[in-house]
Amino acid sequence: MEDSDGNILFNVKGVAFSVIHHRRILYDAAGTPIVTIQRKVKSAHDRWQVFRGDSKETSDLIFSVKRSSLFQLKLKLDVILANNTKEDFCDFKLIGGWLERSFAVYAGESSTAVAQMNKTHTGHAFFRKETKNVVVNPNIDYAFIIALIVTLDAIQSSAGTPVAG
């Protein structure tokens, strides 16, 4: 993942047998693991967990992402921070659509978008290139937003259906 000047900011790698384990690691430009994203094995709402570094320890959990409901026409994901143990509310919500190719991250249940992502495609057939344009509001950790986008892509890959357009 690059910034607007083409500088590499992040790199995502799947772990060996990641198709089975549904695990991805997000690295910074220097190659240091920032977060590990892994699907929770037994989960009714397709829950994914995000851990600090390349850990899978419960004590290193940063946040989890799950579908707001089992059946959805428009994608809605709840983001729950690790310290929200009761899960009475979601800390952030990711809402988007397959057809619109755009997604927004909202603070809790509010209508305040803290980040937006749009996908564009250029080229034709076999030479098609996908670009994700991400705008992050001030005072929002952009690594957190990138981790959400990688989780969204992981959910898409595991479902075998297009989540992000």
Rank of each mutant, 00 (worst) to 15 (best):
K74M: 05
I62A: 05
V136A: 08
V35M: 02
V163F: 08
E130N: 14
A107L: 13
K93I: 06
F92N: 06
G31E: 11
V114S: 08
S55H: 03
A82H: 09
D5Q: 09
R67Y: 01
S43H: 09
K42D: 08
I62T: 04
D28I: 05
K132H: 14
R47T: 15
W98I: 05
K56T: 15
L61H: 06
A107M: 06
Q72M: 12
I34Q: 12
Q72N: 03
E57M: 03
A44V: 06
V134K: 03
D5V: 00
T151S: 14
S110P: 03
F63Y: 11
S4W: 14
E109S: 13
H21S: 13
F17A: 15
F10N: 06
T112R: 02
Q116T: 11
A164N: 12
A164H: 07
T161I: 09
E2C: 07
E2V: 11
A164Y: 12
G31Q: 10
T151V: 07
I20A: 12
V150E: 15
R67N: 14
V35Y: 13
I37V: 15
D60K: 10
F126A: 05
F63Q: 00
Y142W: 00
D153H: 07
E109H: 11
V163I: 15
S102R: 13
S55R: 00
V41S: 10
A125R: 02
I37Q: 04
K13R: 14
N84D: 08
N11I: 09
D91G: 02
D91P: 03
K132C: 13
E57K: 09
L70V: 05
T151M: 09
G97E: 13
Q49D: 04
S55D: 02
F127H: 11
T32D: 07
I140Q: 11
V136W: 13
G31S: 13
T58E: 15
Q116M: 06
K129G: 02
G96R: 01
M117Q: 05
L81D: 07
K42W: 15
R39N: 06
A154R: 03
R101K: 15
V19T: 12
L70M: 08
Q72D: 11
G108E: 03
L148F: 02
M1I: 07
F17V: 08
N137Y: 05
R67K: 15
G14Y: 10
T36K: 04
F103E: 03
D141L: 13
L94R: 05
C90Y: 08
G53W: 06
K42T: 05
E87T: 11
V50W: 01
P33R: 14
F63T: 02
F10S: 02
N83D: 09
E109Y: 12
K74Y: 01
V136C: 13
W48A: 00
A107N: 08
D91H: 02
M1S: 03
R67M: 10
L94C: 11
Q38W: 03
K40A: 03
A115H: 02
E2I: 12
E109N: 11
S157K: 14
I146G: 07
L94E: 06
Q156A: 08
D78Q: 13
L75G: 01
S55N: 02
A164L: 15
L73I: 08
D78A: 11
F103T: 01
H45K: 14
P33E: 15
A164P: 00
R39D: 03
I37S: 02
A16D: 12
S111D: 14
I145P: 12
F126T: 04
V135P: 01
D88P: 01
